[in-house]
Design a protein around this nucleic acid. Structure first.
Lengths: 210, 210
DNA sequence: TGTACATCAGTGAACGCGCGTTCACTGATGTAC
DNA sequence: TGTACATCAGTGAACGCGCGTTCACTGATGTAC
């Protein structure tokens, strides 16, 4: 092959990042090889270093890209109002999301690898989460700026914990129960302004139901 | 070297598991080699397969062992009463624990690798967590059996989420804040029986304090 | 606008390296008599 | 209790393999005049 145009080169770089983001989230960072990613992007592995200085650099870019997608999705939901934003966040606490690695959150899909990753990679994820905190704090249910940010952090803590736990449990019923409980409590915490919109009994029933 | 006695062989096996459990939690499963583990146990790598059929088998044993330690610690705390158990669980939501990989929980230390691990490994961790749910449900604050188990699951969801998020955040203040918020809410959720033991203002102040 | 040349995206072979696993060998332990 | 032999924990070299990275080469693209 020969030299490609500037536009084609940019497209190729974009394609590698997209493919990598999906692969890392699906199979983990260490388990995904550079050659594998390049192959999935319809290229041979030799050309990789025309686009990135190292595999770590690609990991950082892929994480940043994934977080941007999440941030944009949250912004879109937030513009539709705070109940749409809550519904959007709740949708992550689901069996669908638990089984779906491709479109998901880097922290949930490769959390323990990120905790040990270099500072650039962690920065990419951290900044994405800070943006999510801001969006949820600004467009969430409460107007008090201080507790709003706390509520936002708490909400994402719940999502991360519930999905991580649910993904590990071998019993599908237990897994589902963990998600249902987190979803229920999530709703309770984020609807203080309008309490008892559903009876306690109805909420309890939801937990053991599919 | 020559053949070892039955007692010595059992001791060696135990030593390999202990060393492996610490190493896996500290550096991750894939990043920890068999030779590295054997070296840390003062052995050469060749002898590994006298004790275990594969690396995966060792991972499962190491996870099971780590979970047993956590279950026993929870049982000890539970025997001292439910406030001691709550305090014990709260102690996991701390900057000390966030930075401490060695003595910790397999799910928090290597969560995303476990989600992709084989069924035997996930079973070991799952069963440990089920035991923790049982202990917390039995010795926690509430006597209602149904909501007790929900509360237990919810409590561990919070711990897992808070520590996972806190470990990834690059800003130490944000990291600490996430832990403080989770700790505060954890306390609130688990002290419904005796509400407002501390003022709302005091609780809010705690969040931004070290 | 046309020509000559430098640039560089992508190829595919090759690099050293560390991985999990195997194996022939050793000699003290455990066992059968 | 003593002797003869089979067992097997641990050693250290070796296996094939895939990893991240490098490199000489190609030819179309981009640039200088």
């Amino acid at each position: 092959m020969a030299r490609k145009s500037v536009a084609e080169t940019a497209q190729t770089r974009r394609r590698i990042i997209d493919v990598a983001a999906a692969a890392f989230k699906s199979n983990g960072i260490e388990a995904t090889g550079v050659a594998e990613i390049m192959g999935a992007a319809a290229l041979t592995h030799g050309g990789f270093y025309r686009h990135f200085g190292s595999k770590e650099e690609l990991v950082a870019e892929a994480c940043a890209s994934s977080m941007e997608v999440l941030v944009e999705a949250a912004e879109v939901a937030a513009k539709k109002g705070n109940s749409a934003l809550l519904k959007h966040l709740e949708s992550f606490i689901s069996t669908d999301y638990r089984s779906e690695y491709l479109g998901g959150c880097p922290l949930i899909a490769m959390g323990s690898e990120l905790a040990r990753a270099d500072i650039h990679i962690r920065k990419a994820v951290s900044q994405g989460y800070q943006k999510l905190f801001d969006i949820i704090a600004k467009h969430g249910h409460t107007k008090n700026a201080k507790t709003a940010r706390e509520d936002a952090m708490y909400a994402l803590t719940l999502v991360v914990g519930a999905v991580t736990l649910a993904r590990t449990m071998d019993d599908p019923d237990v897994s589902k129960q963990i998600l249902n409980i987190a979803k229920k409590r999530f709703g309770e915490t984020n609807t203080i302004a309008k309490p008892s919109s559903r009876s306690k009994a109805a909420q309890a029933a939801q937990v053991t139901a599919p």
